[in-house]
């Protein structure tokens, strides 16, 4: 019980938007005579704004973050609208909104080809086919099934327990700013050449009370806490720093950086992996080239050419199988839907 309360006390900032969203969606879902869309919409908007405020507080007003929050807000708004609409035509149009907003997210993630493909396939083909089927099936107007939900309380509870759990896990996994800044410093050390540069980065070990030096010692403690298996290596790093042995220091920093790649991830360490799709996940060289702590863009700029190279080298058999699957699905759809004519005769 105490563990539950302490968990709630630690994560209430994450869980409160999920709670607002849960109550909002519960009210928004169509439920016959008891539908209350207005408080549901207000609570949903509160959840969206609260979550946005929590996230925006952490990052600055860069163009990327503004675009991200605009597209993400649109996508989530479209999701809420889609599952709460009584009219299926409006729901299909809200789905088109979700697709367009997530295409903006795809573009932010350096995937212009997939953005175009998604717009053409989803918004162009699938949504239009859906609208066609809806028009065919619902000529009499909104049916009874659209005015009621099935177990709306349990369904929204299950969904938001899932969302809350995922948020907490993601927060716990990725909220490691201390480790990231320590790794950024290590990258600078790995690129350094002279004792003066090391002194610039980590402070002078002989000078007492140097604020830079105190901060770096705290960084070493943080590293020891995060990478317990590299304890001796970090101690040796401290010794090299005290002796100002630059070659030993840089090589040790490189080794620590490559060990960071292996921490907590399912990276096959020995196996040879293809480099046709970009950096191999177990390639330690990939992490040495970065000099600042900021995100490094390593995806090729020529997206379509690189995607084609990857598709026709690493993924050749899946491409053939996908073509086969499309053919089989076409034949299957015709076989299933075209049976009525036989029955009529």
């Amino acid at each position: 019980m105490t563990r539950v309360t302490s968990f709630l006390g630690e994560n209430w900032t994450l869980l409160s938007p999920a709670l607002f969203g849960f109550v909002g969606i519960y009210f928004l879902l169509p439920q016959g005579r008891r539908s209350r869309p207005l408080p549901g919409a207000l609570l949903g908007a509160a959840a969206l704004l609260l979550a946005g405020w929590l996230l925006v507080a952490a990052v600055g007003p860069l163009p990327e973050s503004i675009l991200f929050y605009a597209f993400a807000g649109l996508a989530i708004l479209g999701g809420g609208l889609m599952i709460s609409q009584k009219n299926p035509v409006h729901a299909a149009l809200s789905f088109a909104l979700i697709v367009l907003a997530s295409c903006g997210i795809f573009l932010l993630n350096a995937a212009p080809f997939l953005m175009a493909a998604t717009i053409i396939v989803y918004a162009g083909a699938i949504v239009v086919t859906f609208l066609f089927v809806i028009m065919l099936a619902q000529q009499a107007g909104i049916s009874e099934a659209d005015q009621r939900s099935r177990e709306q309380f349990l369904a929204s509870l299950a969904g938001f327990v899932l969302i809350g759990g995922l948020l907490c896990v993601l927060h716990r996994t990725y909220q490691n700013n201390d480790l990231d800044s320590a790794m950024a410093t290590l990258r600078q050390v790995a690129d350094a050449n002279t004792p003066a540069e090391i002194k610039e980065i980590m402070g002078d070990p002989k000078k007492m009370g140097d604020p830079k030096k105190i901060r770096r010692l705290a960084m070493m403690e943080e590293l020891k806490k995060q990478l317990p298996q590299e304890h001796t290596e970090i101690d040796n790093l401290e010794g090299d720093w005290a002796r100002m042995d630059v070659p030993a220091l840089t090589s040790r920093a490189r080794r620590l950086l490559s060990s960071h790649v292996r921490v907590g991830s399912l990276v096959p360490t020995e196996k040879h992996l293809s480099k046709n799709s970009g950096v191999a996940p177990n390639d330690p060289d990939a992490w040495k080239t970065t000099s600042s702590g900021a995100l490094t863009e390593r995806l090729p700029a020529r997206n379509v050419a690189a995607l084609g190279k990857s598709l026709f080298s690493d993924y050749l058999i899946p491409v053939e199988l996908a073509g086969m699957l499309l053919l089989v699905a076409t034949i299957g759809a015709i076989a299933i839907a075209g049976r009525r004519q036989e029955a009529l005769r």
């Binding site: 969606i25 879902l29 989530i76 999701g79 809420g80 889609m82 599952i83 939900s149 099935r150 177990e151 709306q152 349990l154 369904a155 929204s156 299950a158 969904g159 938001f160 899932l162 969302i163 995922l166």
Partner: peptide, 9 residues
């Protein structure tokens, strides 16, 4: 999660 709610409800 929103998709899961819609599918269930």
């Amino acid at each position: 999660g929103l998709g899961a709610i819609g599918f269930l409800a």
